[in-house]
């Protein structure tokens, strides 16, 4: 009898508890608890990703070995070794290229401060072991990635995150002790003041629900060109000026509209990111170009 009563109240209790969680999250009352839970969750995700990718590599290797055995049995071991070596070297080559981009960017901006980090689980890698991507955003309506640097590494909310040299990918939205969540430019919540390199038109780059990028609030009198490079304007001081965002692929101009818009292709594939740099300090732009500021 008592068990029956308890069971009938349980769903209601859990419902109230989840609403309470939502409210406490919004009031930031649970920030420390969430941060502590991330300490447990992040290594777990990283471990499973490593396991999954390890298993994937194993299957691939087995397949390759079978093919080679059928074709040239006597050369199997040699081919295996060379294949593995080749894969490793390609990884090293990609990593060197990535680091070269980032190094050049750091050299080009001597007054800024940077912090290297990996996209959740792609290690950088003093705190966490070098690995692969450990998890993706589970909410299909948000676009974020996690990186393995947090408040302990001086990462704070709002800091810009770049990759492949000076390509802006987003801003830090949440910072836990050793992990941070980066809100990508194509998240619907993201908005960044930008200008076009050739036409010098200014606007506001916003993420779309379908994951694309669009620049809005571009004055009608500006002449836009497909292929124009989109850069951050630095207006507002939240971001450095001149970070690459993408390239204009389509101009949307309607005679009756107050502004024109531009569809932008991101400069990098956000799903393929490995290493990123968090810009922990920079010299903000204090003046210039009041138009986009006003629109924002």
């Amino acid at each position: 009898m008592r068990r029956g009563t308890w069971r009938s109240w349980l769903p209601l209790l859990l419902l109230i508890l989840s609403i309470l969680l939502l409210i406490l999250h919004e009031t930031r009352a649970l920030a420390s608890v969430e941060s502590a839970l991330q300490l447990v969750i992040a290594p777990l995700q990283r471990g499973v990703t490593g396991l999954v990718e390890g298993a994937g590599d194993l299957f691939q290797t087995v397949r390759e070995v079978r093919q080679l055995r059928a074709e040239v049995e006597e050369l199997r071991q040699q081919v295996d070794a060379l294949t593995a070596e080749n894969v490793r070297l390609r990884e090293y080559q990609a990593e060197v290229e990535e680091l070269r981009y980032q190094h050049n960017f750091v050299i080009a901006n001597p007054t800024w401060s940077f912090l290297g980090a990996d996209v959740v689980g792609r290690s950088a890698c003093l705190v966490a072991p070098c690995g692969e991507v450990i998890g993706q955003e589970t909410n299909p309506y948000l676009r974020t990635v996690s990186i393995n640097a947090g408040s302990a590494e001086r990462v704070a909310v709002g800091m810009p995150v770049v990759t492949r040299g000076a390509v802006l990918v987003g801003r830090v939205a949440e910072s836990d002790l050793h992990t941070s969540r980066v809100e990508l430019l194509n998240d619907p919540s993201s908005s960044v003041a930008v200008f076009m390199q050739q036409s010098r038109a200014t606007g506001l780059l916003v993420g779309q629900a379908d994951g694309s990028l669009r620049v809005i609030y571009i004055p009608q009198e500006d002449t836009l060109q497909v292929g124009d490079i989109v850069l951050t304007s630095g207006i507002g001081g939240a971001l450095p000026r001149g970070l690459v965002v993408g390239q204009v692929t389509e101009v949307i101009q309607q005679d009756f509209a107050l502004f024109q818009e531009a569809v932008v292709r991101p400069a990098v594939d956000y799903r393929q990111m490995e290493l990123v740099l968090v810009i922990t300090s920079f010299e903000p732009l204090m003046q210039e170009e009041p138009t986009a500021e006003g629109q924002r």
């Binding site: 989840s18 406490l24 969430e34 949440e174």
Partner: peptide, 15 residues
């Protein structure tokens, strides 16, 4: 916990 969304959001929907 795996998501960057509000804590409790998916819990409430799933419940």
């Amino acid at each position: 916990l795996f998501s960057g969304g509000p804590l409790g959001g998916m819990t409430l929907a799933l419940l």
